[in-house]
Nucleic acid binder design. Structure first.
Length: 448
RNA sequence: GGAGAGGUGGCCGAGUGGCUGAUGGCGCUGGUCUUGAAAACCAGAAUCGUCGUAAGACGGUCGUGAGUUCAAAUCUCACCCUCUCCGCCA
């Protein structure tokens, strides 16, 4: 019973929000109407089972009802003006007022219907993913991802390389047992030089993006409200993947992309201030509902991990080139750490909900013999800007939606794992990448 | 958590029931003037939706939502946020 009530409350909150969030702004609905086949193909390429025809029918019904309401309101407005005039002239208005009472009731009836359909339509529209860029390969499996380039050389060992969780536990820098004791499975606890290494990575990455790449540092809240996270696109579709503070209906962020992009919600930016570059270190929280299996060992899939994130707000014509630059910024992190990696252009089905085009950076993990996704850089076009209502004023005085981009620069847990596996020595120690040493008190090696 | 004040267009700021989508100022765009710029002057410009090939017509929008009324920026209620004071607190 309680569960039912909670569920109901959640649905009400959601529908209220859907109404509130751009309920007045159906621009994308118009786009959908005018580009039905494009949207249909998008859904197909992303293996999304949304009922597009059902949506179109609801929308048609909605528009018919709006016409009725507006007709009645027009009638009422004319009468109101007349009443005002009659009152001024001290003439009788009773009959008109009586008539309008009935009209008012009719309006109310139709308006209720409109809002019913509007809610349904808006809820559905929020579930339609972004349209991919034409350069994105269409495909329903990861085999359609395209390797764009690779960098570095895979290390060769004259001994059997050990897995990072093994190395970490042996050196006493990772402690999964105790993490699980105080919290639960799939949490990480860093100890001693492990903790220091994590902190060194954060500081190294932030400094690089600040000093060399021109990003502005932000330290945002890591709990955000429903509106913000609906704006960036994680909601409503992925609610089950999110942690949630029930009492206040706020969410621990799955990525700093959410607060960094949401920052300018409902704002009109100055053209001269674009592009805006933000970077932030935050912990990230993910429930990872339904992902079990081999990928979950060690640091590969944990519910809380650290990440340095990059976000850009740009003019529409600049976003393509800005994405390329952002990927390079992320790559530079990996290059300076001297870890072998490859850059993948993701196919339609592999991209995030809000992404129009997305590159992944995968670092080689020699002991596991596989590539670890360590960064995802996406151009979201105006998709998030529309949901968040972020615009800029152009020279001609008109406003236009900005484009938003986000990318990991980069995710820490898997980078940490890759460092252990790539830099491990025969004696069980791990060499600290040179570029990190100033950040870890000059330590060159972690030994047991 | 308690008490008070407030939330209006890109910004500031008028406006307490009926041509108020909203006076005014700043900023913005175009023009006149100027060698150029500034100043001054003139003009333009909110946003969303519905119908329409279009011109345009109409409907909505003053923190959010509901209510009163023939009619709400204006009255009532709830909620959110900001500021000031008090309390509590890492």
């Amino acid at each position: 019973m309680i569960v039912v009530v909670v569920e109901l409350a959640r649905q009400i909150k959601q529908s209220e929000l859907c109404h509130h969030i751009r309920g007045d702004k159906m621009l994308d609905l118009k786009f959908i109407r005018e580009n039905v086949e494009l949207v249909r193909k998008n859904l197909r390429d992303r293996a999304n089972k949304l009922d597009l025809d059902g949506l179109l029918k609801l929308d048609e019904k909605r528009r018919k009802l709006i016409q009725k309401v507006e007709e009645l309101k027009y009638k009422r407005n004319i009468a109101s003006e007349k009443i005002a005039q009659l009152k001024k002239d001290k003439k009788k208005t009773d009959h008109l007022i009586e008539e309008m009472k009935d009209v008012g009731k009719e309006i109310e009836k139709f308006e209720d219907e409109v809002s019913t359909y509007e809610k349904k339509v808006n809820q559905t529209v929020l579930l339609i993913p972004n349209i991919p860029d034409s350069s994105v390969p269409a495909g329903l499996t990861q085999d359609f991802n395209k390797e764009v380039r690779s960098w570095g050389k895979k290390p060769e060992f004259d001994f059997q390389p050990r897995l990072h969780w093994d190395i970490g536990e042996t050196l006493g820098i990772l402690d999964f047992g105790r993490a699980s004791k105080i919290t639960g499975a799939h949490f990480a606890l860093y100890k001693g030089l492990g903790a220091s290494l994590e902190r060194a990575l954060v500081n190294f990455m932030l400094d690089l993006h600040l000093n060399k790449h021109g990003y502005k540092e932000i330290w945002p809240p890591v709990l955000v409200n429903r509106e913000c996270i609906t704006g960036t696109g994680q909601l409503p579709k992925y609610e089950e993947d999110m942690y949630r503070c029930e009492l206040d209906d706020i969410f621990p962020i799955p990525t700093a992309e959410v607060p960094l992009t949401g920052l300018h919600m409902d704002e009109v930016l100055e053209e001269k201030n674009l592009p805006i570059y933000y970077t932030a270190y935050t912990p990230c929280f993910r429930r990872e509902a339904g992902s079990y299996g081999k990928e979950t060992r060690g640091l590969l899939r944990v519910h809380q991990f650290d990440k340095v994130e990059m976000v850009k707000l740009t003019k529409p014509e600049d976003s393509d080139i800005e994405l390329e630059k952002m990927v390079q910024n992320a790559e530079e992190v990996v290059q300076l750490l001297e870890l072998p990696y490859r850059v993948m252009l993701l196919c339609t089905v592999e991209m995030g909900f809000a992404a129009r085009k997305c590159y992944d950076i995968e670092i080689w993990a020699p002991a596991q013999g596989k590539w670890l996704e360590s960064s995802s850089c996406s151009n979201c076009g105006d998709f998030q800007a529309r949901r968040l209502n972020i615009r800029y004023r152009k020279k001609d005085g008109k406003t236009e939606l900005v484009h938003t981009l986000n990318g990991s620069g980069i995710a820490l847990a898997r980078t940490f794992a890759a460092i252990l596996e790539n830099y491990q020595q025969k004696d069980g120690s791990v060499v600290i990448p040179e570029v990190l040493r100033p950040y870890i008190g000059g330590v060159e090696k972690i030994e047991g």
